[in-house]
Design a protein around this nucleic acid. Structure first.
Lengths: 323, 323
DNA sequence: ATGAAAGCGCTAACAA
DNA sequence: TTGTTAGCGCTTTCAT
């Protein structure tokens, strides 16, 4: 099979005995073309399997029908779920999804925005670490920021402050007096929101908080922080996200400590498997999929801002102090 | 800030006092242009922040500088790791990565190939379930199949048969006489390879295998299969992948069964957290990242076929029968 | 070494 | 309702 030159609009036009312009109209403004010719053209389009060249179309319309999704780490289950939902929404809108994984590398965010700003109709930026401060990199391309409110730009944020408050009070209610908080990434808005909520509620309730820094918001990094958790003497742990919470439980178990017998563990967000681990993880459940879908919708509608909220789901990893 | 018309090659040419053609050459074949003019042009390109329009270029060169990655489920950690590596390789080659998540929907694979075949320079297809039988959907666009050898097409496969053999013998060596095998998705080549290896080695060693079907290759689906596992009377479980193995452990624990005391569990592939769970998971470690990178390389080099191999890593979830 | 001109495939005025 | 024309931004002969 030779490379078989792509079939163009001219081929269709010739075959239908009309001008290319008419074919274009039949495809884009069907109501402007006579039913008879339209049907003839449509038949030939199918027969020849004609697919318009997006590049050529984009050259004149100025659109690309691409959206870029910029994500810190696609192997993070929360981001994967977001991307998945965004992808579905994009497909439904006949948009192609360009994926950029920055590897939690802040500059890469800006670089990607700069190089892609002319190649896409819009950006969806998940948990921006830096791009929100360098909006210039986006040029005049619309962007929706997820989990980072940005003045004058669209955003989808999932508020968790109130759920964090619930979580801390839940722990206090079970008699805990010391809480280790494993924070999220430096530039993350969600991390700040949760940390601030922890501080506020701890002040209000009197529980003592030990803030611990973790290298990355991952299972592994959190697991290796467990020594510090134990050293702090805290009987409860709140981790920035679900992956980290599971890591903490793993690390605790390795050291022979019982959850929640010796230490209670709560996740700052949820992951699908959390409900089925041993013990099942108490966590803040967040509408990840909805956020991804709304982000793409927002891009298309040029809407302003969507706020969603997480809620505390008490499962088995938290409870009263036993010792 | 008004929409600020995009800067074109003409703008650069005018500013440099040369013809657009010369600017084009300076950018694409620098050696064909006089050093003096080249430097002048380069300076202006930087000054004006000129970025060539890919669509316009593609129209004439016939390339798009896009590669599409088609994946069954981006929330599966193995696929996420593959996509991540592929994305890095693509970036290094100045290619954009289009992501398609089929949601384990076979037809979507074919549909995506058909609609994208003119929009990309190549496909990377992870664990194809159907596309390998409908190559026509690809048109004349090159494709690399990951974990599915396809005649006359490039592929990257990770062989696990030998490691599965090791795994079964490892179990037999510990005195197990009954093994439950939780299979992978129907159309998956990797699933067939592993299942066949299990059958072969069980024949050779005399261990009895109970093959169980799981709805999806996920943690949750596997966890809910545990009743069937227990009912089979097997004292060992081999699951198609790492996620499923972790799900089995979770399900087992919920029922108060000890791993590996009552039942040994082995994963047919590995996930990052497997080394740190309680107990750490015995699993077949596979070079996921390398596979992703090689796939993109293969696309560019038009190379034939790469074979990698997984190896059994014995950790804590497997051992002798205790009862 | 550079300029001139043609043209990639399509859409969008404008005419008829 | 349909045809004509121009042109999106770029690369690439072909001249010079």
């Amino acid at each position: 099979m030779q490379p078989s030159r792509r079939v163009t609009i001219e081929d269709v036009a010739a075959r239908a005995g009309v001008h290319a312009g008419t074919v274009s109209r039949a495809l884009n403004r069907p109501e402007q073309v006579a039913p008879a010719t339209r049907e003839r053209i449509e038949a030939i389009v199918r027969e020849l399997d004609f697919v318009p060249n997006r590049a050529a179309r984009g050259l004149i319309t100025g659109r690309t029908d691409n959206v870029a999704v910029i994500v810190p780490d696609i192997t993070n289950p929360t981001f994967a779920a977001l991307v998945r939902a965004a992808g579905r929404a994009a497909r439904d809108a006949d948009l192609q999804l360009l994926l950029v994984d920055t590897g939690e590398h802040d500059e890469e965010e800006v670089r990607a925005a700069r190089t892609l700003s002319h190649e896409v109709d819009g950006f969806v930026v998940l948990s921006p670490r830096r791009l929100h401060r360098e909006l210039g990199a986006l040029g005049s391309t619309p962007a929706v920021f997820v989990n980072r409110p940005v003045r004058g730009r669209s955003s989808v944020v999932i508020r968790t402050a109130s759920a964090v408050d619930d979580a801390v009070r839940h722990l206090v209610g079970h008699g805990h007096v010391g809480l280790a908080y494993l924070g999220g990434p430096k530039g993350s808005w969600a991390a700040s929101e949760r940390r601030d909520a922890v501080r506020r509620t701890s002040r209000d309730t009197g529980i003592v908080v030990h803030e611990l820094t973790v290298g990355a918001p991952t299972f592994e990094a959190a697991a290796s922080t467990v020594d510090a958790v134990v050293a702090s003497g805290a009987t409860a742990v709140l981790a920035f996200n679900g992956q980290m919470a599971l890591g903490v439980i793993a690390g605790l178990s390795q050291r022979g400590m019982a959850v929640p017998g010796d230490v209670s563990v709560v996740g700052g967000d949820d992951v699908p498997m959390a409900a089925m681990t041993a013990p099942p993880l108490t966590a803040i459940s967040v509408p990840t999929g909805e956020a991804g879908a709304r982000a793409v919708e927002l891009l298309r509608s040029d809407g302003p801002r969507v706020e969603l909220a997480g809620t505390l789901v008490v499962r088995g990893s938290s409870g009263p102090v036993t010792s």
